[in-house]
Structure formats: C-alpha cells, structure tokens
C-alpha cells in the first residue's frame, strides 16, 4: 500500500494535477475567506466553510479522475494486479494519496486562522469542527470519485461523471424540499434524500453542530465506495 501511496503522491506532483488542484483550491477558498470573513468583519469562519462545499465538489473530480482510469488505459494495472499485493492495497494506496493532497489543500484554513488572529479572537471550536467536517466530506467524495474512476478508461469521462454525481448529491436536497408534505411516494423520496444528505449534514457542522452520526455517515460512505472499487477491480478479473 505504501509503495502505491508514494507513487501516486509523486504522480500528482509530476503530472501537475496537484498544482492545479492546490492553486484553484487556495485561490477560491481565499476569495471565500475574504468575502465571508474579512470583509464581513467577523472571526467566525463558518460562512467560509459553508461556501467551500462548492470547491470540494468541483475539485475532487480533478483529484480522482485519473487514479484508476489511467492505470487501465496504459495497462499499468497489469503490473499492479500481478504484484504480490491485495486489491485493497491498491485501492487504499490511491485513496489515501488523494486524501493526503486534499488535507494539504484544506489545511490552508490554519493560515487563515493565523491571519484572523491579528484582528481578533479566532473561534477555534468552529474552525476545528469545520475542518474535520470538511475532511470527512472530502473522504467520502474521494471514495466516490475513485469508484467512478475505476469504471472507465477515460479520464475525462471519469471527471465529468464524478462531477455530475457530486452535483446531483448537492442539488438533490433542494429538489425535494417541497416533497416533505406531498403524497406517500414523495414523502418516501424526501426521507431517503434527506437521510443521505451530504450537503445539510455538512452545513450542520458549519452551524456549530458536531454530530457523530454525520461523521459515521461520511466514513461509512468512504468505506462503502472503496469496497465497491475493490469489487470493480475484482469483477474485471473474473469477467
């Protein structure tokens, strides 16, 4: 696992994907930081974190698009699958590489906190809470992206499908918002969507609610999709 992790980290930086990811992430989060915190004259970072859902949604596909699709396209998966390692090693190695880069990116908030420190007292509890909330959100989304990457040989297709899926996840709650008082079918749909809600679970954190069920939800999503990815690789071998 460590070998794959290291290679993947190296590949992020040699291919330039990491630079694009970090630049855009930091640029846009910087804008959110300025607009939501500095310009608003507050030291509460919640508004910024709330907006950062958008960045996570748009940038995770860039991070995950080539992780497995390119292996298949270049037939380098033959090297991995015939090496004395398990499929979990392969999937988790790649997963944690992407997650590490994500953590590097989102850790920029500590620099923001440092800046805020000069203006007033940073509310550390919300900052730390939100930081972890975003980490868990990213962990779940990266697993989804990795899974989608395993389904195709085409990086672009992988990125676009991943973006669409994350976008649907984001929009789903708004689409069903009127269904709460509708007929049975609508109510069932409403219940399902709100239970699986990534966005409101995330925004709960930005409102200062640190809910354990949501953490468990994000982590189990991450696990589930990594499991699916392993199954996809396994299935490819057996078909």
């Amino acid at each position: 696992m460590l070998a794959i992790y290291r290679r993947e980290m190296g590949a992020f930086f040699t291919s330039g994907a990491a630079y694009v990811f970090l630049t855009v992430f930091w640029l846009v989060s910087g804008i959110f930081f300025f607009n939501g915190v500095i310009a608003a004259g507050t030291t509460d970072t919640s508004v910024m974190f709330n907006s950062m859902f958008i960045i996570v949604m748009f940038l995770i596909p860039i991070l995950t698009m080539k992780l497995l699709s390119e292996e298949k396209k270049n037939k380098t998966d033959q090297g991995l699958l015939t090496a004395p390692i398990s499929l979990w090693d392969i999937v988790l190695g790649k997963y944690f590489a992407a997650l590490t880069l994500f953590i590097i990116a989102e850790s920029i908030v500590f620099i923001y906190a440092f800046i805020l420190n000069y203006f007033g007292n940073v509310i550390w509890s919300t900052l730390i809470g939100n930081y972890f909330a975003m980490l868990f959100l990213g962990a779940a989304f990266i697993a989804v992206g990795l899974f989608i990457s395993s389904l195709t040989e085409n990086q672009m297709a992988s990125a676009v499908v991943c973006l669409v899926v994350l976008f649907v996840i984001y929009l789903s709650e708004m689409l069903v918002v009127n269904f709460a008082n509708g007929n049975f079918a609508k109510r069932v749909l409403y219940k399902i969507v709100t239970t699986l809600a990534f966005y409101s679970r995330y925004t709960d954190f930005t409102r200062g609610v640190f809910s354990l069920p949501s953490i468990v939800f994000f982590l189990s999503t991450a696990f589930l999709f990594n499991f699916f990815t392993v199954k996809v690789l396994e299935k490819r071998r057996w078909s």
């Binding site: 590949a11 291919s15 270049n74 380098t76 033959q78 090297g79 991995l80 015939t82």
Partner: peptide, 9 residues
C-alpha cells in the same frame, strides 16, 4: 506483459 506496465512520467 505484452505492453510493459510502465508509468511514463
């Protein structure tokens, strides 16, 4: 393999 599994970068 037929196509060596090389990471070209």
């Amino acid at each position: 393999p037929e196509i060596p599994p090389l990471y070209i970068d």
